[in-house]
Nucleic acid binder design. Structure first.
Length: 576
RNA sequence: GGACCUGUAGCUCAGUUCGGACAGAGCGGCAGCCUUCUACUCAAACCAGAAGCCAGCUGAAGGUCGUGGGUUCAAAUCCCAUCAGGUCCGCCA
């Protein structure tokens, strides 16, 4: 967003120093403390050239700037002040308020957006069928969806893709378990969880038993070969899973544009692998087809097993081809955990060795890494039974939120309580998943997840609800003309205005760096500064001019919270 | 053995990409703001005591930025070494 205040500071400095505008612009910063000023210009780098101490340079330049400001008529910059080696600039606060609040009022739901015009594919969620969904998938879907929304808000066209492992050894094991373990009939609901359990049981039964392992392998080959009975069972159980995934998408506000399945690229994957072997790009090793990437320090990438079945690797190559032929993408982002980092490096390298088209596609591809979700006791392990399943998580959080809502609103009817509780529970969950640097592991802790105070999603919802309550009490429409001069006396107010002002910048950086956490952190800061203001300043009880200006500020904060939370796929509430 | 990530307050984490003004939040604990009660008073406020509420606020407390070197006017940030934890490294995804 254009920043006329910053530009004015750059202009002043360009006029009173020998430094170019572009260099000044690069050096200008925002002081750590508001009391110091609104913009700052460090003078260290001028010291050598001018052979003076940075302190002297700052003092002299500041006084020249102030002389110029004094002779000029009312400008948006009020004064400069030398503080050690820094020149600090103070802007006209009423002007700042007017500019920022008018921008929000004008752009409303679009405030903070931009127009980048790229076509970006984002692949996320990709849970496997026949395995239970757990907390790790939740981090993926929260991160993926908010990333999509941020990129979309930044004016890009997003293709949301889900690539699902619906075939492979894990499915074979599950089906083997259904046929060979006496686990009773599948339930009418929560069948995904039941299948996941069958898979775990089968895994335990088969592991270490060579004969059974061979049986499962044969079973997989028969599925690939199109065995009628097995395919029917596979398709039926697969469908159960997909239906439950659909429910989950609703919880997280996700609508994929494209679903790819491993089963639909398996044939192509085998074909491509054979072709690569024929072209001498891939090689044979121990009966398997591999890419030898040791020259690139990427080890060995196995495409086809000794049995001739395609692995994740070659299926991903086939998938890339499929995407390339359908879409003309500027970028392709894979939201996948850290444990697959090597896989993606190998995949991109292999693509780039395949041909010019593939090489270009590999350059546009990006693996967005995030850390594992751990438990306080360590890594999740289905064998040790230490897995937090999504269905348990969901019901547990909703139950807790329901209690809290009831405690506060004994008079609310059942439906209203349920609605609020669900929104609050998911706000807590989603925010907790997003508000963490991608690189870091996330330790999931029920106590933390359930928290509604402090740095949480509900804290943001609460700030929003407070503003709604102010407007309910006010009960009128804001007048069109508002005087800003009376409102900017409090530091708390100015602080809020500054946060509102930088929202578009935050969205832009979050989009560029693919880090929704930057946005979630910002929203916390905004809400905190608003709560400070709310405590410090009377709103409805103030003089009419001041009251109206403050109401407009509230409206702006409400709008930014709404826009920001929408980008995190978190719902807002008018009352909570 | 190799590759990547992490190490900052009692706990959970920002800040490191691009070196600059005193290293920031949240949680927990402490002291308050708010409500009620008690005592006092003609009455109210202040003050004192007790209980409670609080998706909110304030204040104070809490730090060898893993360790050791180096570069620099300036290092949590850059470079080197080292320790600790995590993930991955040929037929899972």
């Amino acid at each position: 967003m254009a920043d006329s205040f910053r530009d004015a500071v750059v202009g002043l400095l360009a006029e009173h120093t020998n430094v170019s505008r572009s260099e000044i612009s690069a050096k200008i910063e925002v002081p750590s403390d508001d009391l110091l000023g609104d913009y700052a210009f460090p003078c260290f780098f001028l010291a050598k050239e001018l052979k003076k101490s940075p302190v002297a340079i700052a003092t002299e330049t500041a006084s020249r700037v102030n002389d110029a400001l004094a002779s000029a008529k009312e400008g948006i910059i009020e004064r400069a002040h030398a503080a050690g080696p820094y020149i600090n600039f103070f802007v006209n606060k009423a002007g700042l308020a007017a500019t920022v609040l008018a921008a929000v009022e004008k752009e409303k739901g679009g405030y903070g957006g931009s127009k980048n015009g790229k076509i970006i594919m984002v692949e996320y969620f990709h849970a496997n069928t026949h395995k239970a969904v757990h907390i790790g998938h939740v981090r993926n879907i929260c991160l993926g969806e908010s990333l999509c929304r941020i990129l979309e808000f930044s004016g890009n066209k997003i293709v949301r893709v889900n690539y699902q492992g619906d075939i492979g050894p894990h499915v074979a094991k599950c089906i083997w378990g259904i046929q060979n373990l006496n686990l009773g009939a599948p339930p009418a609901i929560n069948r995904l969880r039941w299948l996941g359990n069958v898979y775990v049981q089968a895994n335990t039964a088969v592991e270490g038993n060579e004969k059974l392992e061979a049986d499962v392998k044969q079973l997989l080959l028969r599925i690939y070969a199109g065995d009628k009975e097995l395919n029917q069972l596979w398709k039926e159980t697969r469908q159960w899973c997909l239906e439950e995934f659909d429910e989950m998408y609703k919880d997280f506000g996700v609508k994929h544009d494209e679903f790819y399945f491993e089963s639909e690229v398996e044939f192509e994957a085998r074909k491509i692998s054979q072709q690569l072997l024929k072209e001498g790009i891939a090689q044979e090793s121990d009966g398997a087809i591999i890419m030898d990437l040791k020259p690139y320090k990427l080890g060995v990438f196995i495409l086809l097993t000794r049995d001739g079945t395609a692995l994740y690797s070659s299926k991903d190559i086939a998938l890339a081809r499929k995407k390339m032929s359908k879409y003309s993408l500027d970028r392709s982002i894979h939201v996948v955990g850290r444990e697959q980092e090597l896989h993606f490096k190998q995949l991109f390298k292999t693509l780039s060795l395949m041909g010019e088209k593939e090489r270009q596609f590999a350059e546009k591809s990006h693996h967005l890494i995030y850390g594992l979700v751990m438990l306080p006791t360590g890594k999740m392990s289905s064998r040790a039974g230490s897995v937090v399943f999504y269905d348990d998580l969901r019901s547990g959080l909703i139950e807790l939120a329901t209690e809290e809502v009831k405690k506060r609103h004994a008079d609310w009817e059942e439906k209203k309580v349920a609605d609020a509780a669900k929104k609050i529970a998911f706000a807590a969950l989603k925010f907790g998943m997003i508000n963490r640097d991608n690189d870091r592991e996330l330790v999931f802790d029920w106590e933390q997840a359930v928290k509604l105070e402090g740095e949480t999603g509900p804290y943001l919802q609460y700030a929003y609800a407070r503003i709604c309550s102010v407007f309910r009490k006010y009960g009128k429409v804001l007048p069109g003309k508002i005087k800003y001069s009376g409102m900017t006396t409090s530091a708390a107010e100015v602080n809020v205005i500054k946060f509102v002002k930088i929202f578009p910048d935050i969205v832009a950086v979050a989009a560029e760096q693919l880090k929704p956490a930057l946005l979630s952190r910002y929203l916390l800061d905004l809400a905190q500064s608003f709560n400070n203001f709310y405590n410090d300043c009377q709103i409805l009880g103030a003089e009419p001019d001041v009251r109206d200006a403050r109401l407009l500020l509230c409206a702006a904060v409400k709008q930014v919270l709404e826009n920001g939370l929408r980008l995190l796929a978190i719902d807002v509430l008018d009352e909570m």
